[in-house]
Design a protein around this nucleic acid. Structure first.
Lengths: 250, 250
DNA sequence: ACCTACATATCGTCT
DNA sequence: AGACGATGTGTAGGT
């Protein structure tokens, strides 16, 4: 069997054959169709008739894309189970997720293209510039925070949450760091404040420092009101990513 | 021109013709290919050679899907601008976003299928069960919170954030509601606490109530420690959605 | 353009 | 399975 099969305006039998073949062979199924979509689960939705791109992956992920936006208009996450039915002469793709219980149904009104793709892919994304890499950088180079700072714990569970980095300053005071790889907002300040207050039950002179490339105006205001601190730090980008080697794009 | 064009194992000229045609005609371009992907922008990533599904929408949204997960492995949001180049005999799809500056490059090593889909779709999703509908329900039926509760403001800007619902209880005390359509977590409690504390500067006896279908264990603990309250409320699902009419799926 | 918060968020990690 | 927090979060709505 070849890596790709594709049929335009497939007759019903051909459509069912390719759909069944894809669902039973670890292939990605892609359908261009006019369809209606019904979803019921964590929320509930209806989508009237229109042309969409439907993708069903071998892990159960189910995507319905309109011609705009990055996000699918309807979907089902991996682990969902797909079946094909025929009701009143209309072919229906039905995807069921067990927990939480969610059902997605697609009425295929007209299929313009059905295709199957046995994708072979052994590569994983190598990404740099994450918050985890900021933390590594600070552990290797604690003076990025301030002279004498000593990081002690990473991802430390405390009373009400998990602190990014817990350490001590040159005077021995406990210091909580909350890292953000992008501009920090009110939410980030609330998070930091929650950690500081949880630790204040058992320690004195806790300092809380928000570590990020920048701050929103509201975050700055709240941070100052709460007596918390800010250190400007950019998330680092590694020179080499994974096994590949690549010049910068710009 | 027809709604769909699709060519398997296209020769270079045919590939370029369909790509150009799609990019200049408001069509969705879909490519099954072995490719490498390079991204640099808010972060930076590399993805080695493998088979993927590439989708480019007329609004500039650019998706690269592997055979697992709901999320694209790489992407570009709507508004990005696509060009096609040839470097050392390899065709490269290049998508540029202006702000923030982000570049995505896909080296097409082997194209198994290229297709174009002039999707016509005038329908929008009608969704029910959102937090906004919870708020409407509470305004219509304030005793869902407690007897004598009077909602006054919706999405009210206060000192440090935007309160979901601000009202008064039967005794005239100011009440802040934080609504969650799903199980509320530590983050939700911190949010509520932030609003209550912002209002405490100018008012006395502020009550904070977290309104959600359930609570995580940690949220319950923090809520109690902070003297905040909880009301169990499910997000409502409307019977009719938009213009369509539909029996429940289960 | 910035800020704020929701989302059927999804996803990974740890308990 | 539940809890917790990051994400190149995306997206909408307000100012």
């Amino acid at each position: 069997m070849s890596k790709v099969e594709a049929v335009q305006n497939p007759p019903r039998g051909e459509l069912l054959r390719i759909v069944d073949s894809a669902l039973s062979s670890e292939a990605i199924l892609t359908i261009f169709a006019r369809c209606r979509v019904h979803y019921d689960g964590r929320a509930k939705s209806e989508l009237g008739s229109g042309d969409r791109v439907i993708i069903i992956k071998p892990d159960g992920a189910f995507l319905i894309h309109q011609s705009r936006k990055r996000e699918p208009v309807n979907w089902q996450p991996p682990g969902s189970f797909v079946t094909v039915e025929e009701r009143d002469g209309v072919i229906i793709l039905r995807s069921v997720r067990r927990k939480p219980k969610e059902i997605l149904e697609v009425e295929l009104e007209e299929v313009y293209l059905v295709s199957l793709f046995k994708a072979e892919d052994y590569e994983e994304l190598a990404l740099t510039g994450s918050e985890a890499e900021m933390a590594e950088m600070i552990f290797r180079n604690p003076e990025l925070i301030e002279p004498g700072f000593k990081p002690l714990f990473r991802e430390k569970q405390i009373g009400h949450g998990i602190v990014d980095i817990l350490g001590r300053d040159r005077d021995g005071n406990l210091v909580v760091l909350e890292l953000k790889r992008r501009k920090a907002d009110l939410h980030a300040v609330s998070q930091l404040k929650r950690y500081v207050e949880a630790l204040e039950k058992e320690h004195e002179n806790i300092r809380g420092i928000l570590v990020a490339p920048s701050l929103t105006s509201g975050a700055k205001k709240l941070l100052e009101k709460e007596g918390l601190e800010f250190r400007r730090v950019q998330p680092p980008k590694r020179e080499k990513l994974g096994k590949s080697r690549q010049k910068t794009l710009f």
